[in-house]
Amino acid sequence: MAIRRGRGVAAINYPTGMNLGGDPTQALVHSTPTGNFMVTLSSVDLGQGMKQIMAQICAETIGVPTDRVVVDTADTDTGPHCMGTFASRGTHRAGNAVIQAAREARQVMLEVAAEELEVNASDLETDGQGNILVKGAPQKSISIFDVALSAHFKRGRSISGRGMFLIPRSYPEKETGAMKPSTCYAHACTVAEVEVDDETGEVTVLTVKNVFEIGRALNPKMVEQQLVGGSWMGISHALYETTEPYYPNRDHGGTDFNQYLMPGPGDLAETKIIVLERPSADGPYGAKGPGEMCANPQIPAVANAVFDAVGVRIDTLPITPERILRALKAQAAN
């Protein structure tokens, strides 16, 4: 009887969005009289940080600092339609809608600035700090604050824009299954190292080294949040979680956090996260959806590591001590 070590690898991809159902999201953007920008959506922030990311996307597109953008979301009286926050679609779909709306608003902003500066709008650029400059002659400039005031009180222009992003629904062909389930895919590869106690069947995940390719890390610290939490959830799925421990038997289902097992802060694997960025052709600034796929590769990587450690395959999730011990017993009997 011993503690045995093993390691396993898994590589995966994951689709962004739900093309098999039609996948629209809309956004509205408008400026206040003093050149702050409101983004209006009906998208839901589940904790992943939708509001912050949409603010950064709008700010980048308009050419202002993020703290001049306010996101008002998830009020059906004011926000235009969004399909919802699921299928790794939020950042990609809503982000594209925000870009389109912000571009339209930016164009009006530049037109008003052009009138004030008596130049062509196409000769103007933003400095990202709240000013509009004449290209090649940056001394000739106007603040966005003044442009917005002019638009509201002098020029009678609405600095606003509408955004709509729709990936048309793909209907699978009946006989061949030809379909377009997604327009872009995120990728991952995970290597897990485990220790398995062949006397108790207990698995300890020592390390997980995750490489994720996510298109573009729009806010790296928020990407890290998702990926670290997702990696933890993947390990949790691999070893602990089920509402029906003896499925398909319906009995013994846990009803609270004492019976439904998840690793606590004392059970964490040493976790490494590496991010690659291959911008997607149709993502907002190249982003793909990282929120779901980050919890997938750890499950098979842990399963493969358990085999590497003790030489038994557990092909039923979760990989419980009971299943490992039964498999070891069967192996010994053979």
Partner: peptide
Amino acid sequence: HRQPTEGAALIECMQEASRVANW
């Protein structure tokens, strides 16, 4: 499902995993 692959990055993820995991 008869879509040509676009924007693949599986190989690069595995290359980097090979490096960081010393595999």
